[in-house]
Every structure is written in C-alpha cells, then in structure tokens.
Design a protein around this nucleic acid. Structure first.
Lengths: 250, 250
DNA sequence: CTGCCTTTCGTGCAATGGCTAACATATTAG
DNA sequence: CTAATATGTTAGCCATTGCACGAAAGGCAG
C-alpha cells in the first residue's frame, strides 16, 4: 500500500469518526503503530489533525472555539427549535441568505443535506456547508470579524449587493414593537439592511429574550420583514401587532 | 510492447485504482522498473499524475482534478521550502494576497504569527488565519469550489478588484519560458490575472515539476511577475532568461 | 494524593526496497 | 549502416518501515 493511500485512508476515517486510534489504524492498515505515528506526526505538522495520547482528532474548520464557542453552547434547545421552524419555511431549490449568528449555525447544520443555494457571511457556516454535495455555497467576503467568525464591513456589503436571494434569514440583538430591529454595531446593522434589501422574503430569527429590547443601531422597522421566527409562542400584544401589520410569525 | 501502449495501460490502471505501484506495473507489463519510472516521470511532466515513493497518484487534468485532501500531503518538503523562502520575502505590516493553492496553505501556516493583513480566496487559509490575533484577515467571497476549498468565479473577481495589496503570491499548474504562466481552468486563470493586476509586487510559487509545461488557460507572460519562488535551484537556461528579464528568483 | 502498573511515545538502528544517474545494450528510423 | 531513441543494468544514495528499549503519560487501587 502506497503511503499516500494510507494517509487517504486515515483522513477518511478521521472525517467519519472525528477521531482515530493508533492501535486500530495499525491493525486495519497492516502496518506497525510506529508507521501510523509517523503519519499522524506529518499530518499534524500539516495542520490536518491534533495528536493525542493513543490517537488523534480531526482539525477542520468546524471546531471548538472560545470566543463564539461559549456563546455557541448557550440556548441550544431554543436555537434548535427555531432552526426546525426555519427548515420548514425553506423549499427545495431556494436561494437563501444566512447571516453570521449562531442561530443560523444551527439552521445550517439542519439544512446541510437539502438541495439549496446558500449565500452566507459566516465563516463557520461556510465550514459547515462546504462538505455538503447538495448545497451550492456562496460566501460574502470582506473583513473578517474573529469574534463572530463572519465577514463584515464595506467589502461584505458591496459583495452582498451583487446577489439577490429568495429568502434572507437574519438575527439581531434586539427587537421592539415600537423601535423595530436593532443591533449593537453599526457595521453589522448596515450589512443586515443590505441583506433585507436583496431578498424577496425576509425572516427574522430571535429567541424570546430579544423581545422588547432596544440596541444602539437601527436596522429596519419591524414591517421590513415578512416573518419572525421565535422559539416559543408570542405574547398577545405581539400577536395583535404582527397580525395587524401582516407579518407572519412562527 | 510499444511505449505508447504501455502508457495507455498505465493510464487505464490509474483511472481504475487512482494510484499505481511501480513494482506491480513492471511485473504486469514485462519491463524493468526503470522504464516504468521513466514513463511516470514523463507523465508527471505532462501533468497526468504525481509521483510518490513507490508509485504514483492520479492527477487527471480536466475533470477528475485530485481533491485538496489528497493533494495537501503531496510534496510537503517542497512546499515547506517554498514557504520558508516566501516568509523571508514578506515584511511586517505588508498587505498580501494568497491564492487557494496548497503551497499557499503552507505559507499561511508559517506566517500566522506575523503582523500582516492577508487577503485570500481560500476557505482553508481563512480557517488557518482566523485564529491568529496578529493577522488582519480579509476574504474574497464568491462561488465556493469544494475541490479546492476556495472561492472562484465572477463574484470572487469583482471582490478582488476592490482591493489592492503590496504582494500577491499565486501558484499555477504550469510555467514555461516561452508560453508563460498557465493553468487548467479558465475561471481560476482570470482570478489569478486579477490578483496580479491588483498587487504592487507579484510572486509566483511553484515546485520544480511545474517548469517547462504548458496548460490550457493562459494567465500571464512570465514577465508579468516580479519574482518566482521554487523549491530547488533553477536550471541554467531559466537563470539566464530570468536574469535577462529582471525577474527575481529564489 | 501516592505509588504501582500498563499503555503509549520517541528515538536510534538496521534492513529492505526505491531512487537517481551514468553507462551499456537493444531497437528503430532514415 | 548509422544515428537516435528506448530500454536494461549497475552502483551508490536515500526513504520508508519495523523493531527494541528507555521515558513519559494515563489509569487504578489503596
């Protein structure tokens, strides 16, 4: 067996199981553990994996992070519920935009097997979807923001302006019946505005803690979106308002 | 057996198994291993395959382009040497562009700790550099190409046109004294052209197997770059040519 | 937490086999 | 027949792999 083929086998196993054990690989590939160790050393050098005692684990884009990592584990059930609802809003063949929010990460994971064209400003979502062979992936470039692992700024906006999608799904920091959709940073707000302007249907995804709050930068009035997706039922004043203004809610 | 028939047999075996072993081929075709080696050398020059210790791996130019997962473990020492040389070409504070080649992956890993602004069309390089807190990262968006894990097409070109960098570092499939810099795909060729046009200094990085070859799509004449970085010393006719045309070489 | 035991790691060494380069021989074309 | 090209042979060097042994890491009982 060629060394290159052996490494391909290791990589395949790594992709499938996210980690490998030296003893298993050695038995499976009919070489000594030393050889496997040497391979893993090289692949670690090459940035493909990280070795541990007894084996190694995968190191591709999608991985444990600290910044967003902590935020990522917050409110997982809520995000899952929102993602489920969004999944049923999306139709096969749709062109959709996903922003860099962790809620959209959950959505991305859920739709990875569907037949869609996805435009995103998130590096993490790019990593989640790049392995899918049913998703056609486009990414908005621009300045990278490490905190959210997404692309922002003028470059991102200019790129986004070149696209037009069926459905834009964005999140925000705060949403208020009177003050509309707001976020903390101006740059991100303008990106969101552009996304809304370049979509046929616009959906806002938020968990219930975002309701009745206001943040610094105005994105758009509530009426700018076609629907709001939340993890639980809306309060009655919201139901009244949304019904009256013909905004769907899920 | 005719040489042409032998090569056809090698190609067939290569298509079927994705890789071949010299010993097997020699036995199978009733020639010495040296002859097989010579054949493989020629076919490597021809861009059909990549030789490895004990055999060769398929590199079927047009459609079956070998995927990056496999390609990244090939010619590692060569890429490391090239990356080292590039590292010393780059100065603190530089704005640089890195394309999606695996050689540039090595460069990215090497410069991750330096104080630079990096623009790239590669998702993998984005992943390598996004963790660095000394690198300011910008990414060219656009259509995602899973095979190379990079962004290509009109979107990428349009985004790239909005930037201007100190140094562009690009790779290519083939480089020839007479026919210049060429690559297999037209889309990638145009992206490279744009990168060259938007950089103050332009460097081409290649390993020695790329020399004296020609591929389908013309990128630029050799004189379009300021320097060429290779893993080993240049042949004397190249030294003459490059010196005469004031192209640096490393 | 400590000490003991097992497993894994790293390194040096040896053997096998592959690589290159130069030269010798065979084959083919003109 | 001769020159050119293709193939085989040989020798020395280099790469890969396996093996052995001391060091380090991890696990477990007390």
């Amino acid at each position: 067996m060629l060394a290159i083929a052996r490494k391909a086998a290791i990589r395949e196993s790594l992709q499938e199981h996210k980690s490998v054990r030296i003893t298993e690989l050695a038995a499976q590939l009919n070489v000594t553990k030393e050889t496997i160790r040497r391979d893993l050393r090289e692949m670690e050098q090459n940035g493909e994996l990280i070795r541990t005692h007894g084996g190694a684990y995968i190191l591709d884009g999608v991985q444990n992070d600290i910044d967003v990592g902590t935020r990522q584990v917050l409110k997982i059930p809520e995000k899952e519920r929102i993602a489920q609802k969004c999944d049923s809003l999306i139709q096969s063949g749709d062109y959709i935009y996903l922003d860099g929010s962790t809620t959209c990460w959950s959505i991305a994971r859920l739709i990875a097997h569907r037949k869609l064209t996805v435009l995103t400003s998130s590096l993490e979502i790019a990593n989640i979807l790049c392995a899918s062979d049913t998703i056609k992936l486009h990414v908005v470039g621009g300045e990278f923001s490490p905190k959210n692992k997404d692309f922002i700024g003028d470059g991102a906006i200019k790129t986004l302006e070149r696209y037009y999608v069926d459905k834009a799904i964005i999140s925000c920091r705060s949403v208020h019946l009177r003050y509309g959709i707001t976020d903390t940073s101006d740059g991100r707000a303008r990106l969101h505005q552009t996304a809304l302007e370049h979509a046929r249907r616009k959906y806002l995804v938020v968990d219930h803690s975002k309701l009745n709050n206001v943040s610094f930068s105005h994105i758009a009035p509530l009426t700018a979106v076609d629907g709001i997706v939340m993890d639980r039922d809306f309060p009655s004043d919201w139901v009244d308002y949304l019904t009256e203004h013909h905004i769907q809610f899920f």
